[in-house]
Simulated assay, not measured.
Amino acid sequence: MQKIDKSILSEVIHKRPDISYKGNYGRILIIAGSTHFGGAALMSARAAVNTGAGLVTVATVSEKFTAINVDIPEAMTIDYRQENDLRDAISKNNVIVIGPGLGSSETTFHLIKTIIKNIDEQIIIMDASALTVVSEKNINLKTIKNLILTPHQGEWQRLSGLKIPDQTTKNNLEKINSLAPNSLLIVKKHLSEIYYQEKIYQLISGNPGMATGGMGDTLTGIIAGFVGQFGYSLKSVSAALYLHSHIADKIYQKDYVVLPTKLASKIPETMQEFACSQN
């Protein structure tokens, strides 16, 4: 098992070329939020924007448009209940997030099916409610070419059938190779683990101040921003995971709890620090 440390950030984050435009840095579609769980969409989108994603679109319920447009004016909004708009957005974006704050409803099931039917080479990140619905509806994930799964241990238990005490590295690797052999799996926990093509990486940072609502939604947005800019690879996802905990560890030195909004606000300056450290 390989440990993920600070060196991964300088390997992945690089200075932007002088001649750049927003299309160079990823087109991210975040399908998230619902009437009762609008904050998840906000936190995922804020994190994606702050990592430097070129274009971020949030597909959510129209009742949440004002909150998103005021809090994150850099992000665009569409209503995921409008089928044609959603399909058009799926085709135009290269990274698609689904799950934060959606709830385990038939709507979420329909959204997952719509994605699977309308994707080609896009990178799909499934989180939160999407993972629960996949397990409840026994959705086949093997046909998705570029898939990232981000369950916490309870969600992984539902998806894999492995009880938490049985979630050993050996069992996790066997199960993900059975469920979705082309995917990259992050099992979120104390010292989170990544499983990808027979390789296992482990995070060696993080703190108890991160145990608060929205932390996972923020991580999902960071991952989306990283793979949109730096490509879909074990390294880019590992760097996203490390950056999330690295910033949280700095905040925790002074703060009793690590608020996701504060963490997201520190992303641009932290990335610049590591991009400039290559010189």
Rank of each mutant, 00 (worst) to 15 (best):
M1A: 12
S7F: 11
L9Y: 08
S10K: 12
S20E: 10
Y21T: 11
G23C: 04
N24R: 12
G26Y: 06
M43D: 04
S44A: 15
A48G: 05
N50M: 04
G54S: 01
G54Y: 05
G54P: 04
L55E: 06
I68L: 14
M76R: 01
I78H: 00
D79Q: 05
Y80G: 02
R81L: 14
Q82G: 04
D85C: 13
I90V: 11
S91Q: 13
V95R: 07
I96D: 06
I112A: 03
I115D: 04
I116C: 02
I125D: 06
M126G: 00
I139Q: 01
N140C: 13
T143Y: 07
I148M: 07
L149Q: 02
L149F: 04
Q153A: 10
W156V: 01
R158W: 09
S160H: 13
K163T: 12
N171P: 04
P181A: 13
P181Y: 11
N182A: 14
I186Y: 01
V187N: 12
K189M: 05
I194S: 06
E198V: 02
S205F: 01
G206V: 13
G209A: 01
G209Q: 11
G221D: 06
I223D: 02
S236E: 01
V237I: 15
S238H: 04
L243T: 03
S245D: 11
Y252C: 01
P260L: 06
L263F: 13
L263T: 10
L263Q: 13
A264C: 12
K266W: 13
P268A: 00
F274C: 03
Q278K: 15
Q278N: 15
N279E: 14
